[in-house]
Design a binder for these strands. Structure first.
Lengths: 321, 321
DNA sequence: ATGAAAGCGCTAACAA
DNA sequence: TTGTTAGCGCTTTCAT
């Protein structure tokens, strides 16, 4: 493997000069530039990125940790994050934390080890003590200290879901979702927005919750259908759960949306081809992904940033009237 | 940030000694070991991984490039690859190539730049000229020169799909899929297996193909349903397409599986909750993911390896009789 | 068993 | 505009 030294020697110039033309920094005359470029071509020289990262203390790698890439919303988000990082000449390292705090911490540790320049994290663990405001970290749906975060407007989404159900004539609505005892995420606001809107309107509502992670989602949802036969409109925490609820309802010969309206949250594109098409509150995944990268890069470069909360919209499918 | 130099100084030992206890290499007396460990604890020393990677010429990062993580089968595969890499103390860099050859080549280039130790690639481009047998690369479903690859037993899968359709009484079967003019992938063997089995049995069969990438899958599938009303059993190249075919058939009031049996390929777990449940030829995704990592690590360490072809099985759902 | 020193390939500060 | 040089933090000989 040819090194920059070989290039300099062959071109008959100094090390620094060779470095300058390679990095297009500083002044170099056209003549010497040509000489160096020829030498590079002749040797097939490729800069050693590891050496470069070592000396500049910046490797242009960003870590993304999330519960599991094996989940439609996350993989969609990861797609856009990678795309935006690539545009900014960063590489993306991916870690399925499986919600294990050790794995998340090991990535946070990589920041100290200089192995990554920054982190985008989706975490439902108590990582408060391990991170601080000076680290280049951006979180999704999670508000910890001054760490910047990105989320969709969960509260407005909850309100919106309620409005849709009420406007379509539902008399008895419910929210189905999860909660955690240990941490507080922005996701809870979906429930709050829904609940407050319901209270305000005076309509009867039910909260059907189970602690995350749910052991058996099918059992959980079937139980809901059995216990709450009077409910005619449901807002479900996420699309995947909503989709299963719809299927289970249909199996029980409950007509959707005639007898039961269902709204999900996320707006996962991939499910668009499925029938019945789910009505949902759509998060602007692409915007969120790019926004995360934007904020993170600013943090890496030492700028301070503020959280970004992105508006959601209602995507009507076939599961609401 | 404390360096190994600080550690050595505080512990009152030489640089090399400090390095030895950190890496648990060479001989160190218990006494000095303790001194160094104390110093590390006191300083909160963390090794700079970039420096380490630089000097050892090995950064323990593996790149995975695939068309898009935003695709169920790939994200499932990526999940297991990451998991297995993590067990072997490697990190995974992820790249959505979007089938752009430039992006794939830029990753291959990272091998030369020392930015990654190896590559796992899913590529449908002509990258033959850019890679060679000495590079630590493993491919999925693609046989190029002596580059090792991993795939499911596509040929057997095709045969299996045919047998299922025939055994359930189908009289007129078809294969629906894509083809490429420029390259040859193992995926084509799904069609070959199916076709040969059909020929052998003497049953009438149709091949319904379009060049990849398909512009509008819905149009493509609807056209099939319109043109081939006599077909009563279909093997579709992948689950996603099969799933859409089922939905489109149902919309046209074609009864599945009574009037039309459908079998997909992949066996994506996440779709298991959807109804009707798709019958499919399942690839052992987890085994394949771990196998990819296993082969790659052997390559990185200079061992030669042979391709791994993994058996598939038939997963009966509700779309076949 | 341990310390000193060389060197990995590169960038950047400095001098010329 | 260019060449020289000093590190970056670490591992690894090589003496001792």
């Amino acid at each position: 493997m040819a090194t920059i030294k070989d290039v300099a020697k062959l071109a008959g110039v100094g090390l620094g000069t060779a470095s300058r033309v390679i990095n297009q920094s500083g002044y170099v005359s056209e003549a010497t530039k040509k000489k160096v470029e020829d030498a590079i071509a002749e040797l097939g020289y490729v800069p050693n990125e590891t050496a470069r990262a070592f000396v500049t203390q910046d490797n242009r790698i960003v870590a993304l940790f999330l519960p599991s890439i094996h989940h439609a919303f996350f993989s969609e988000l990861a797609y856009f994050i990678e795309d935006e990082l690539d545009k900014n000449d960063y590489k993306m390292m991916l870690c399925n934390s499986s919600n294990q705090i050790e794995k998340e911490l090991s990535y946070i540790n990589m920041l100290k080890q200089n192995k990554v320049s920054g982190i985008i994290g989706i975490s439902y663990n108590q990582i408060e003590k391990e991170i601080n405001n000076s680290m280049p970290i951006v979180l999704v749906d999670r508000h910890i200290g001054e760490i910047p975060y990105v989320s969709s407007d969960n509260y407005a989404g909850g309100e919106m879901a309620f409005q849709v159900l009420r406007d379509s004539g539902c008399k008895q609505v419910a929210y189905i979702g999860t909660y955690t005892k240990t941490i507080l995420t922005e996701v809870e606001k979906r429930k709050k927005g829904f609940e407050n809107a319901a209270k305000e309107s005076g309509l009867d509502y039910t909260l059907y919750l189970e602690e995350d992670p749910i052991k058996d989602q099918t059992v959980f949802l079937n139980q809901f259908l059995t216990k709450h036969k009077n409910v005619d409109g449901v807002f479900v925490e996420n699309d995947l759960m909503a989709l299963e609820l719809v299927q289970l309802a249909l199996e029980k010969n409950i007509k959707v949306p005639e007898e039961l309206s269902v709204i999900g949250y996320d707006g996962i594109q991939r499910y668009g081809a499925l029938r019945p098409k789910l009505s949902t509150i759509r998060q602007p995944v692409e915007v969120m992904g790019r926004s995360l990268v934007d904020l993170l890069i600013k943090r890496i470069n030492g700028f301070s940033v503020t959280p970004a909360i992105h508006p959601v919209d209602y995507l009507k499918g076939e599961t609401t009237r």
